[in-house]
Structures are given as C-alpha cells and as structure tokens.
Design a binder for these strands. Structure first.
Lengths: 233, 233
DNA sequence: AATTTTGCATGTTTTAAAGCATAATTTTGT
DNA sequence: ACAAAATTATGCTTTAAAACATGCAAAATT
C-alpha cells in the first residue's frame, strides 16, 4: 500500500480529531514518521506486558482492546473504529500495556512514535487537551463498566453490548442490521459471559422479536426494548 | 479551622505532586481561591450526576469514590489518602459525575475551581502532564479491575481488596495491622460481594491464619499467602 | 440503665450462570 | 470440492454466590 496516498486520503476525507489541532510544522513531522501497517483478521497489534512505543491510529477496519483473564477467558474493554487513536495510555502511565489490541477484521493502522507525540504535546496545548479529554471519557466508561458488568444480569449485559455495537459501528443501509459481524465468542467476551450463554440469550432475544439472527448478521428489531432490558432487566 | 495555617501545614509537610510543579504566580492564585472543607464520617462530598465544579484535594482523612448500582448495591472504585486529588475527571470529560465521593472517616478536603485549574493547565505543561499521568494510571487500574472483579472468585477478590488496603493506607506501627477500619459492608462493596460473603470469607481467612480479625481491626499475618490467593485462588 | 438500632456471625435455601456433553451447521484450508 | 476444524445450537448437571433467616454482640439513643 502506498503510504502517502493512504494517509492523504484519510486526512482529506476526515478532519479527524487530532489532525486539525496541529501546526504545519507538526504535520510535516508526522508525515515523515507515520507508518502504515496492515493487520489480518484476529492479528495482534500489541500485547499485554509489551512496552508502549507507538501511538496507533486505526485508518480502516475494526480493532478490539481486550484483556486476557482467568482460564483463557477474555474481556473486551473497548472497540475502535476509523479514525480513532489507541495504545497511548500505557506510555503516559509509564508502564507496560495492561491490555492487548487486535484486529477484528482486516485493518489498516498507522503508527507514530510516542516520543514524538510527547514532544508535540509539550508544544501544543490543544493536543494535551485532546488526550486529557479522551482519557477522561475512557475512565468514566471503564468505571461505569465495572458496575454494569458485575451487577447486571446476563440479559442486561447482552442488551448493553448490542447497544454498544450500535453506538460504535452503526447499521447497514437498511438502518437495522449491525455493521459488525462478530463471533458469538466475541459477543460473550464483550458482555462477560460464556459463549453458551451468549448464544442462548441471543436466541431468547430473537424469540422475543427484539432482534433477528442470521449467522453473524444481527438485525435490531426493537431498539427500545433492548434499551429497557439494558437499563433494568 | 484556619485556612491559611492548615494549607501551609499541608504544603510544608509534603511537597505534594502538584504544588511543586507550580510557578509563584500560580501559587498565589491558588491560595486566593483555595477553600477548606470538613466532612463528617460518611458525608458525601459530591454525588453522581452533579456537575463538576471543583478540583478536590484530600488533606486529612480517607475518601472513597464509589458508584451506586443495582438494588442499592454499591461499588467502591478508588480510595484516596492525603495528599491526593480527585473530582476532575468529569470536568475534563465535559460530563456530569458518573460516581460519588464520600468521606470514610472525618476528613479535611480543599477545593479549587476547575476553571482555574483549566487555565493553569493551559499555561503549565507540567500540570498537563500531571493529569495525563494520573488519568492514564487510573484508566489502567479500572481496566484491570473490570477483569478481576468479573473473573476472580470471592476469595481472590477479597484477598485483592485487602492488598489494595495495604497499598493504599499501609500498616499501623506494628507493621501488621491495617491502618483503615472499614465496615464489613464497605469491604464487600470494595470486592464486589455481599456483606454476608465478606464476613464469611474474612472468617475463613482468619481460620486459615492468613489474617486475624478483632472487630474492624484486621491484622495481616501471612501477606505472601494473601498475594497467592489474590493471584490464583 | 434500659432500649433501640446497627453490625457481625453463621446456617440454610435458592438461583443465576458456569460447566459439560452432543449434534448440527458453517467456515476454512488444501 | 472436500475433509477437517471451528462455530453455533441445545439440553442437562453442577456450582458459586446471592438471598434469606436467625441469633448474638456492641453501639448509640433515650
């Protein structure tokens, strides 16, 4: 893939969060140090305990941030879509990664040395604020997740996961079909349950005409009901 | 309470994280806008859904950050000791609080308008980095907590909670007795279990000579074992 | 000092979710 | 195109933790 053209395409089609905050000199520095990588489905971008070196920017595809737990059980923490940045938290915390990132589907990801980002933050207030804002949002999200994943019942957790998928990746052109096609196992890992229970509960939702399921194609039929179940059920 | 003297005592006895990063002009601004508050045991400092206005700094006492969940169940998210800052995340995220803060025991807390902090960050790189670092550490902690609280069994979760108490508040002079005296209910809320199970499991640990329990006085007898249980069991 | 309230302890029952087994279906690799 | 592997679907069993109940002890209120 041609780095320059991919980058420029991305830039031109989206004045993504960071780019618009940069000064011309900084933009030059970036284009000089930015590298484009392709990841296959399920390929790991970085792993827990690695040392953080790069800021990653998802350009195309879908990426999951997850943590391996007990007995091979995996918890998906966050999902990324183009154009979002990830992999910077551990660097800022001055510690190795506590989670791993992997491509959900074939993805294009850009990298930029964190040392460079660090220097840029030193000289660019807006960039500092960008990260402060992102980190703050994420922390609020994780704190909330602690409670919902530990206290909600299976149906509530699955409903919430489906809503997260809607909010993150949206619908196909029909306005109903989720634009992400996940394995049941990943849905389970997102909502803190076993694969069996994810399958079972999806079937139950289908029976109740809240969704329809056709393989990995999930159509949201009754979003209201889903939100109700997420909130109470 | 005399504001000036308390503040100066605090400052003199600890070149706490933020203070040393400030320029003289900033220090003056702070002393002019800093207010000291006293909170009684269990008094709420701020509550979920409130709008964040102040940066809080715990000067004396102990504070818990928690979230009320389903059926009155409460999850303690973080604990603060002097001199630590809290209450800023929601302001940075531009959203209302998603959690509440309350004094665990009679506490002295300072407040500073977040608008002032914001201006100071704009003009002080080090201060920006202070918050980026704090937020990053906390986010790593919350992400880890998501997994341990959902995947570890009761014994593991309680062991981990006890280790958290050691790390946060340390021991009395005997080097064994926890320097925090919590209700069983709070221990339960920290480790995501019912009060009954916290009591039961503490008793079990005592029987196994890992700890001794005398009312709210908990003595750590076998820290090694505790760490083992936290890691595996 | 008496009484009410709150917190601790422990036993029993219930239940939500995990674990396990099996079969059918779909996907993947050669 | 085919076999092998992985994923999905369902039923049954087990289990960890919640829910409930009761008694006792220690504080707090009067």
């Amino acid at each position: 893939m041609n780095i320059k053209s991919t980058l420029e395409k991305v830039i031109s089609e989206d004045l993504a969060a960071i780019w618009s905050l940069l000064k011309p000199e900084e933009k030059r520095q970036i284009t000089d140090n930015f590298e484009i990588h392709s990841f296959k489905k399920n390929q790991i971008i970085y792993a827990e305990k690695d040392n953080p070196v790069y800021l990653w920017c998802l350009l195309k595809g879908k990426v999951k941030l997850y943590k391996d737990g007990i007995g091979g059980r995996q918890q998906i923490l966050r999902l990324y879509r183009p154009i979002q940045y990830f992999g910077y938290r551990a660097f800022f915390a001055k510690e190795p990664y506590v989670s791993s990132a992997a491509a959900f589907e074939p993805s294009t990801v850009g990298s930029l040395p964190m040392e460079l980002v660090k220097n840029m933050i030193d000289n660019n207030r807006d960039l500092a604020w960008f990260f402060i804002h992102e980190l703050s949002k994420n922390l609020g999200g994780s704190d909330t997740k602690i409670v919902t994943l530990t206290q909600k019942h299976i149906r509530g957790r699955l409903a919430e996961a489906l809503i997260l998928l809607i909010d993150n990746y949206g619908f196909e052109d029909d306005g109903k079909t989720l634009k992400i096609y996940m394995a049941r196992e990943d849905i389970a890992n997102l909502s803190n349950m076993t694969t069996s229970n994810a399958i079972r509960t999806l079937s139950a939702f289908a029976q109740e005409r809240i969704i329809t399921v056709d393989g990995r194609r999930i159509k949201i039929v009754d979003e209201m009901k889903l939100r109700q179940i997420s909130k109470f059920g």
